[in-house]
């Protein structure tokens, strides 16, 4: 059971800086993933403006028939979002954890250029461990 379909990280101007898919469902080629990332960025920004609630920070969860999209926005405008099976639980916690990994292994790496695609070995290793752990936990629940 693949609970998570794919993971995206977009920088504050909407460029895709990290993409990874898990499992076969919802696989996309590079162009599609780039398009989806910037589309989400704009939708997120528009939703902030349209929201009837004052001080809205944008869409956190998009529920569709075939998938759920959970989004986390950091204070600096970097957005992390996962596409998962409908009804998958505890995605907020996972997103927070991924953000922690991002701050540790990407931002503290002297060879990473801000706003550029993420190519950090340690981030990849720790991320796959986190996803693995999450899957095991899901199966146990």
């Amino acid at each position: 059971m693949a609970a998570i379909y794919s993971l995206y990280i977009i920088n504050k101007s909407g460029g895709l800086i990290f993409y990874k898919d898990y499992g076969s469902a919802g696989r996309m080629d590079t162009n599609d993933s780039l398009r989806l990332a910037s589309l989400w960025h704009s939708m997120h920004a528009i939703s902030q403006q349209l929201s009837p609630v004052a001080g809205c920070s944008g869409i956190e969860l998009l529920e569709a028939d075939t998938f759920d999209l959970h989004c986390f926005q950091s204070l600096t405008g970097t957005k992390i979002f996962v596409v998962s099976e409908p009804g998958t639980l505890y995605m907020e916690a996972l997103l927070k954890h991924i953000y922690e990994l991002y701050t540790d292994y990407v931002l503290k790496n002297p060879f990473y250029e801000m706003e550029m695609p993420i190519r950090c070995e340690l981030f990849d290793i720790n991320l796959s461990q986190a996803i693995q752990k999450d899957r095991v936990a899901l199966l146990g629940r």
Binding site: Y105, P110, F111, R119, E121, L122
Partner: peptide
């Protein structure tokens, strides 16, 4: 601990 060396830097070690 937090440093990943890019491939093009070869054997460089902080």
């Amino acid at each position: 601990r937090f440093i990943s060396i890019p491939k093009d830097m070869g054997t460089f070690n902080c």
